[in-house]
Amino acid sequence: MIDLRFFIVYLGVFGSLGIGAGMIGFLSVQWAESVYLSSASGDLAQQLGPIFSGFVVLQNSILIQFFAIHMTLLLGLLFGGQKNRGQDGALVGGLGGLIGYLSFFIPAVGLLLVAPTESELFQISSILLLVAGSFVLSGLTGAVGGFIGAEAN
């Protein structure tokens, strides 16, 4: 029997971490724009400033994917370890990983994408392959973590 409280905890933990990661991304893009765009002078600075702040957006987007996968493994181990069978732990970890990834990704990338005002922002369609891969990997790493956690108990 799967306890729905696990998934509520996944939503709460990942959602709050997603808001925090989004705020860090938002502030880092605003900082990069204020340092490299607002105070920049000359043609070269005006051309390279948006590229640099766009790179900050790209870097934060990739780190969000990296962090999400590691968190699903950790919570999969934690919550899967409370199950008696490996299959139950894998199910809790896998479903929790998928739910957690979405609740982490949506606020984190949403806040990150509203930050740039002058930077050259990538198209959201260009990151879809990375997002799809991270979504699948979050479910997979959560399931592996849950299985290992349950079998270790």
Score class of each variant (00 low, 15 high):
residue 49 G to V: 08
residue 13 V to K: 03
residue 36 Y to G: 05
residue 26 F to T: 01
residue 86 G to V: 07
residue 89 G to D: 08
residue 43 D to F: 10
residue 14 F to Q: 07
residue 32 A to I: 09
residue 73 L to P: 15
residue 125 S to N: 11
residue 20 G to Y: 07
residue 44 L to N: 02
residue 124 I to F: 15
residue 110 G to E: 11
residue 23 M to P: 09
residue 93 G to R: 01
residue 42 G to W: 05
residue 74 L to N: 01
residue 48 L to N: 02
residue 134 S to F: 07
residue 137 L to I: 13
residue 139 G to A: 10
residue 1 M to T: 05
residue 93 G to K: 00
residue 150 A to L: 11
residue 136 V to N: 11
residue 77 L to Q: 07
residue 5 R to I: 12
residue 5 R to V: 12
residue 105 F to V: 08
residue 120 E to K: 13
residue 44 L to W: 09
residue 21 A to D: 06
residue 140 L to C: 08
residue 95 L to V: 11
residue 11 L to A: 15
residue 148 I to K: 01
residue 82 Q to C: 02
residue 119 S to E: 01
residue 95 L to G: 10
residue 33 E to A: 13
residue 19 I to Q: 07
residue 112 L to R: 05
residue 110 G to F: 10
residue 116 P to Y: 14
residue 97 G to C: 06
residue 74 L to G: 06
residue 53 S to M: 00
residue 115 A to S: 10
residue 98 L to M: 08
residue 68 A to P: 15
residue 104 F to L: 13
residue 81 G to K: 03
residue 143 A to N: 13
residue 20 G to Q: 03
residue 143 A to S: 14
residue 76 G to S: 08
residue 115 A to Y: 00
residue 145 G to E: 01
residue 140 L to W: 01
residue 49 G to M: 05
residue 55 F to K: 00
residue 113 L to A: 07
residue 13 V to E: 13
residue 149 G to E: 12
residue 83 K to Q: 15
residue 7 F to S: 05
residue 107 P to W: 11
residue 28 S to D: 04
residue 97 G to K: 05
residue 141 T to K: 01
residue 101 Y to A: 03
residue 83 K to V: 02
residue 3 D to I: 01
residue 69 I to L: 05
residue 135 F to G: 07
residue 24 I to F: 11
residue 84 N to G: 04
residue 81 G to A: 09
residue 110 G to Q: 09
residue 127 I to P: 05
residue 76 G to K: 09
residue 144 V to Q: 06
residue 153 N to H: 12
residue 26 F to W: 13
residue 24 I to S: 13
residue 140 L to P: 04
residue 69 I to W: 03
residue 94 G to R: 02
residue 113 L to C: 04
residue 147 F to E: 06
residue 82 Q to I: 00
residue 10 Y to E: 13
residue 68 A to S: 15
residue 8 I to G: 10
residue 121 L to F: 04
residue 98 L to P: 14
residue 115 A to W: 00
residue 5 R to Q: 12
residue 66 F to P: 03
residue 79 F to Q: 02
residue 60 N to I: 00
residue 14 F to T: 11
